[in-house]
Design a protein around this nucleic acid. Structure first.
Lengths: 350, 350
DNA sequence: CTGAAAGCGCTTACAG
DNA sequence: CTGAAAGCGCTTACAG
């Protein structure tokens, strides 16, 4: 029964490597200088014993909770699910634990609630997905609390907290161009909710693609939607009943794209043979419906992973340069993630 | 600046209450007998200092990881999301941390992978949502590892591991009866995938409702589906094109119900005025489409919470009676959760 | 670049 | 029913 074998401790590793615990600790935390040869010996010992640091002991000794929090505010279930999977796996692999809590920024006592939550759980850093990533109120409170935070897909990039996102305008450009490549020149567009910056970015991408290919932008081909199925349905009907209707429609969300397909079918336009349709998000509905929807996949899981990494990085270096978080971070390209065109069944050549 | 105040330790509580740390510890763990008066003093001190036990210290001292794991295998994003939120909040409130990992039971090395995962992370207990809750292989491995596990919505109840679920047959009965109450007597049924026990349970509920109301069960009103949109579409077309078509259709999943609506529209049957449709699950698509779908909501989040509670209960009492997990648990009613009929827009009186 | 000592805040035996 | 002592496995200063 090898089963009952006790798990190795740092002590064991030190003994096997012929060094002190301190050295082992330094190798693991990858911090202070350790001679290469010493490091190798320690690494070998860790390997041999299959040593796993005891996180509880580490937290206790360092007086740190190793706890980060992800707050969410009624987003779609699928969205939080992806977010949680990404944040959870990354925080675990980096030795942190994740607290998850819903937070309503519109209630009177957000401030009290938030402070209590942070103080009581000794939360060290925070991940803010949309729409919290744009809540001035929440951002202000966190700022005052002087606690590091990372935003996911924020609308504004003029805030000192770092963020991760994807290039929505470019994605919209790409999928529009895909339609153009298929021979479409009459392309309708259904806008998203005007309050979401995503709506503007997607429209911008659509416009840029048409301009690049010298296609006139027709006002009657642009319909206002609100991201919902219902609003998309009405917008699609408006497009489809035009005297000179488009041969393809780009809806700013998958719900609206699904509605567009229904509207088309109702008006005896087969998709994609008589009308091509594309969406945005790669929501569950995109692959549920039939024909399945050609759309843009947002890398939600990856964004959560990246955000978690950013946050933990900040946590680890924070002690050295206290006000680093105050200055706007260099928003490097690594934090703008790749989207993906999901080419499915709703697009045909014009 | 009260901000910088150090958080109270058990030492502080003991001093304020005029007892030893040991007594405070006992009060908190709610275990050994403590005189009521002593307990009250301690409680008051805890209250006054807003004392929060340090989980790291507890874990280190007790040599327990306080870690439980939730494994999942490619279910829908929305489903995992709900699951995670429920399991996470409950485990946190009970002082446990949650590890989340996907697990593919079909790979060759599940056993090795599972054992390594459990051993390395010192995982104390496991939550198994479907379809893992029915994987004989995974159950066997866990059994051999002698690690407590709790299953969510398993198909079989003949396994020693305890489980939580909802009464799917009763839910199907209720929603069918709802249709009958609205005056429908010609009710079509689209079955789910034959391999899922849920399919059988839902069919059983449908049948029982018709029988109760003395409505004949017509073979041509029963169509086989596979839970997918596409399969539902075909099944719905079959029903709708019958010489004597049903006035209402109960699809065993929301995806198939959504497909039924599309199929109806294609055949110029307005929903719900000419055809009523109900689904099962309350998946995102149910409220996304229009008209929004009348369906049954499964209490996924609550099931995850209950499962987590069950698991932690087992963990806490395990040391006393080692073989308790071996004997089939008394499956009490608390572990069968309430579903909810979501009455929306796809049902009209016949 | 490396190490010996002290201590983080609890719980586990063991006494009484 | 209550308490004094030891120790869980690390990291933080502090030396050298």
């Amino acid at each position: 029964m090898i089963q009952k074998m006790k798990t190795a401790t740092m002590q064991d590793v030190a003994k096997l490597a012929g060094v002190s615990m301190m050295t082992v600790s330094r190798v693991i935390s990858n911090e202070a200088k350790v001679r290469d040869k010493t490091r190798d010996k320690v690494m070998a010992a860790i390997e041999e014993l299959d040593y796993q640091p005891n996180l509880s002991a580490r937290s206790l000794a360092s007086a740190k909770s190793h706890l980060i929090a992800l707050f969410y505010q009624n987003p779609s279930e699928g969205y939080v699910g992806q977010l949680l999977i990404g944040a959870l796996s990354k925080s675990q692999s980096r030795g942190y634990n994740l607290v998850v809590s819903s937070l309503d920024e519109t209630t009177d006592d957000v401030e009290t609630a938030l402070k209590a939550l942070v103080r009581r759980n000794k939360i060290e850093g925070i991940i803010l997905p949309p729409p919290l990533s744009d809540s001035q109120r929440v951002l202000d409170i966190l700022m005052a609390l002087n606690i590091p935070a990372v935003r996911i897909s924020p609308q504004r990039d003029d805030h000192p907290f770092p963020f991760v996102c994807m290039d929505e305008a470019q994605a919209a450009f790409d999928i529009t161009e895909h339609l153009i490549t298929q021979g479409h020149r009459k392309i309708g567009f259904i806008q998203g909710h005007p309050d979401h910056s995503g709506s503007h970015l997607r429209y911008e991408g659509y416009k840029r693609a048409l301009e690049k290919h010298h296609i006139d932008i027709r006002d009657d081909y642009i319909q206002q939607g609100l991201f919902t199925y219902r609003s998309g349905f009405q917008a699609a009907v408006n497009l489809v009943t035009l005297a000179d209707p488009p041969t393809a429609i780009f809806a700013s969300s998958d719900d609206m794209a699904a509605a567009t397909i229904s509207a088309a079918q109702k008006h005896h336009l087969q998709v994609p043979s008589m009308l091509s349709v594309v969406g945005f998000d790669d929501a569950p509905i995109a692959s549920a419906i039939w024909p399945s929807l050609t759309t843009v996949r947002q890398p939600i899981l990856e964004m959560a992973e990246r955000a978690t990494d950013l946050l933990i990085d900040a946590l680890k270096k924070k002690p050295e340069t206290e006000q680093e978080m105050e200055t706007p971070p260099e928003q490097n390209l690594e934090n703008i993630l790749e989207y993906q065109l999901m080419l499915r069944e709703t697009v045909a050549a014009a």
